[in-house]
Design a protein around this nucleic acid. Structure first.
Lengths: 109, 109
DNA sequence: CCTTTTCATCGCCTATCGTCGATTTGCGAA
DNA sequence: TTCGCAAATCGACGATAGGCGATGAAAAGG
């Protein structure tokens, strides 16, 4: 079972344009990149580092030390619960919203 | 094209346990419910109303006026872009993270 | 008409987030 | 050892979000 709290944490980690951009950059870059992420997002190095920390804490990325730099890689599996939740929402309420029977809305007491 | 900003807004609307709970209640309730949502989430009515406003602003739910109450219904289609993004992330970086060739990491300048 | 019910909005307060510059740490190279 | 680079951490700031009670507005029913 995945708690709402866990799901919310996951969603929160995606709830910022800079973090989405980082994920895109990571996805588009096959190998290992270092400070190029900083240039790609256009924010201060410390800010990007903080976003990377958040993504790492959420399990969305992993960081391997590679000499003087750090190698970040995606761990998309961490998002599976969130994807499953979104999928579970997909079934639309086909039976109209309120009491399709007509106008006798809520029975009079 | 869906901008990172749009995606972030979508994710932000999911980034709170109370809102997830509201969506679950809406999903589990076939017809129209009113203030039962307030009881279900266990927060103050004004707080729930605010969360509902956020969900409505994000397009995740719709509200129809039905006499004295409001009929909320899911609009899961709004989440499609976010689901697509998560899907697009799914392909894992199979070619190992950093320079699979071995130890001659970054060529010496 | 007035009453009741239901939801939205308004202030107000606290907690968390996002951002930055500055500093510290870790590692390879000279 | 010392230097320089890359990344993380720290401290501080303003902005935003989340929570509440109180109030307001629309509609059904007597």
């Amino acid at each position: 079972m995945v708690t709402d709290d866990t799901l919310a944490e996951l969603a929160k980690s995606l709830a910022h344009p800079a973090r989405l951009r980082i994920l895109r950059v990571l996805l588009a870059t096959p190998g290992c990149i270092g400070g190029e992420i900083v240039e790609a997002v256009g924010l201060a190095q410390s800010t990007v580092s903080e976003h990377l920390r958040i993504l790492k804490a959420a399990g969305l990325i992993t960081g391997e030390i590679d000499g003087p730099r750090i190698c970040y890689a995606l761990s998309p599996a961490a998002l599976a619960p969130l994807g499953a939740f979104i999928d579970s929402l997909t079934p639309p309420p086909e039976g109209a919203c309120c009491l399709p029977a007509g106008k006798d809305k809520h029975e009079p007491l």
